[in-house]
Design a protein around this nucleic acid. Structure first.
Length: 352
DNA sequence: GAGCCGTGGAT
DNA sequence: TATCCAAGGCT
């Protein structure tokens, strides 16, 4: 039996009115739409990132930079350091580029999906989400939650990524003309709390009567995904050079892994190969142990070497800085190097 | 289209 | 412990 699109959107919006999550970037029920700045900032932070991980960062960013012009005026290194630990650092670079573009045109975000899509860091999903949530435009918002809910609702079994075309068509068909922002957030809340990836709570679902995947008896089978590739294991060395209660930190290149972030000097490892083992000084080095870290497409074992010599005058000053040890937490080190710093300061080298 | 790009929580 | 996965975008 084919459920009508109106039935689905009406049931979902009713459910949302009763069960919407109370989130810092979301308007209370009945209140005006939240500021586009807050919607945009939250959506960028939420890209491939859980609500729980975002909350503290959102609070800190909006405290330090209350509007888009304030963010646009912030120094790169402060924003990158504030983003440290959240991951996908290209987002922070694009965030600043976008803020400066918006500030340059008067501090107002464009209100159409097409213009939003042209801004740095806004792809199909984020442009649609901002257009719908902040500006009340009808837009088809498709993220991983919507993909999962729609695939189950209509029992779409073409494997992703190819199956996304059909999923998008169905998502378009059930997106209402009015309240499409609420509809999108309702779909995402449903996906996050009820129609979860594993062990969906169909008994709590407002769409269970319309769900073809459930009717087939195994909603968890949807969406079908292509098999994943194995992660290679890589090794590298990083170097802890300490002098006068300070440690030598460098700035990574603007693109690529951990691009633009502060870091310990290392041996040139990258996603497709191990490092050379060579550091910025000849040594002598003492092993301080290892830390393990798993990235999206490879795992890394980092061996930390501590400098025991006294020739650090040869370090190229313009490519690094002596950072106070008692402020290491403010350096904005991405997690891999934060682990290494913790190891160096703890002084025990057994844990991997 | 496919590879690259982080992190932490859940199971 | 190993695996999966999340409010994706860019090249």
């Amino acid at each position: 039996m084919e459920a009508s699109s109106d039935t689905i959107s009406r049931k979902l919006l009713n459910w949302y009115d009763a069960h919407a999550r109370d989130l810092p970037w979301r308007a209370r029920p009945g209140a005006p739409a939240p500021e586009p700045y807050r919607v945009w900032l939250s959506e960028v932070m939420l890209q491939q990132t859980t609500v729980a991980a975002v909350k503290d960062y959102f609070a800190e960013f909006t405290r330090r930079w209350p509007d888009v012009s304030a963010l646009a005026a912030a120094p790169d290194e402060e924003v990158m350091a504030a983003w440290a630990g959240l991951g996908y650092y290209a987002r922070a670079r694009n965030l600043l580029a976008c803020a400066r573009e918006v500030a340059a045109r008067g501090g107002r975000f464009p209100d159409s999906e097409e213009e939003l899509r042209a801004l740095p860091g806004l792809g199909a999903y984020t442009a649609a989400a901002v257009a719908a949530i902040a500006f009340g435009r009808r837009a088809v918002v498709v993220d991983a939650n919507v993909e999962r809910v729609v695939a189950r609702l209509f029992a779409l079994d073409t494997p992703l990524p190819g199956g996304r075309t059909a999923i998008r068509e169905k998502a378009d068909a059930i997106t209402p003309e009015r309240r499409s922002g609420d509809f999108a957030q309702a779909m995402m809340d449903l996906g996050a709390t009820v129609c979860t990836s594993r062990a969906p709570r169909c008994l709590l679902c407002p769409l269970s009567a319309e769900c073809e995947g459930r009717a087939l008896g195994e909603p968890e089978r949807f969406p079908v995904k292509a098999p994943k590739k194995a992660k290679p294991a890589r090794r590298c060395r990083a170097f802890w050079i300490e002098r006068d209660e300070r440690v030598w930190l460098v700035r990574r290149p603007g693109k690529g892994m951990l691009g633009g972030m502060r870091a310990l000097p290392d041996d040139g490892w990258h996603s497709r190969g191990d490092g050379t083992g060579e550091g910025p000084l000849d040594g002598p080095w003492e092993s301080a142990g290892k830390v393990g870290h798993v990235f999206t497409h490879f795992s890394l074992e980092l061996s930390l070497a501590v400098y025991l010599g006294n020739q650090c005058d040869s370090l190229p000053a313009e490519e690094g800085e002596w950072w106070p040890l008692d402020r290491i937490g403010e350096a904005g080190l991405p997690t891999l190097f934060a682990k290494a710093a913790h190891l160096a300061l703890a002084g025990t080298g057994e844990r991997v």
